[in-house]
Design a protein around this nucleic acid. Structure first.
Lengths: 143, 143
DNA sequence: CATATAAAGGATAAAAATGTCTTTTAATCT
DNA sequence: AGATTAAAAGACATTTTTATCCTTTATATG
């Protein structure tokens, strides 16, 4: 579905969304333990997210990672795009160049609107939206 | 979304569905060219599919691969399951053990019914169904 | 300024996925 | 039976993904 790295990325971002703020930054190693993501690898993923302004970071004492208000408005799909590239979820299921809405391949056709909606949801929903769902008890994040 | 190997598998099965029969078997190498799948690797994939009775095969002169009537009734999802394992598409997007319908994770909740329908389509539609769509011009298979 | 802190970056390592090649087994045909 | 055909199986090579470790850079504080 999505890569392991993207799962790590989404988990880490949600963890930050729930537990950090500009005045309460969190160290990579302190995200690693509760989320069960290998420390050094998570650091790499966070680095990549930081480079693309999906998470915010500050070096040195009192530093760490956190989400700015802007970061919280980022759609989940963007996290996945940064880590997995653009086509993993959105391209035709058989990776056929010639396949599009006009000339759909059999899988494209089969999957139809369900996949379109699926992707649309990921594009429209932001980190903030997911946090709200968690806060309202609509969903849970068992890390 | 699904692995390269699964894409190869689905392509090869569809190719067989469209071009082979018990009285007209096709060699692995003759599927390789039109589908642009590496010959030796395709052979491996077909071997695996054959072992799981998703395609039929006969050794020796006049032999090759083909789809029996039973093979054509196999749901697309089964092809994917044999190659990718059971959980790639169906498990929770974050691979959380504790996530289910009762206690959905935020992604689970987000994706909601769209993913369920997506998977359901793959489970319900058979090779035969896709072939029919192609024959009726509802979809195209540009290999 | 010196020191400690913590992310950024670079170099490797390990594992999994993808791909290739060679040998073996089963079937057909003369 | 012997020769030929084609899948099955096994061994190996390459690439990508995942993971670790070490060094460098930026920041804060005494």
């Amino acid at each position: 579905m999505i890569s392991n790295s993207s799962k790590y990325a989404v988990k880490a971002v949600l963890y930050l969304a729930l537990n950090s703020s500009e005045s309460h930054k969190i160290l990579a190693k302190d995200i690693s333990s509760p989320t069960n993501i290998p420390k050094a690898y998570l650091a790499k993923v966070l680095q990549e997210l930081s480079r693309h302004n999906i998470v915010s970071s500050v070096k040195g004492p009192g530093g760490g990672f956190y989400l700015s208000e802007d970061n919280k408005k980022i759609p989940i799909m963007k996290i996945i795009h940064v880590i997995d590239g653009d086509n993993r979820l959105t391209s035709c299921m058989l990776s056929l160049q010639e396949c599009d809405e006009e000339n759909p391949c059999p899988m494209h056709d089969l999957v139809g609107n369900t996949k379109v909606n699926f992707v649309k949801n990921l594009e429209q929903n932001t980190v903030e939206d997911l946090v709200e769902d968690i806060r309202e008890g609509k969903s849970f994040l068992p890390l």
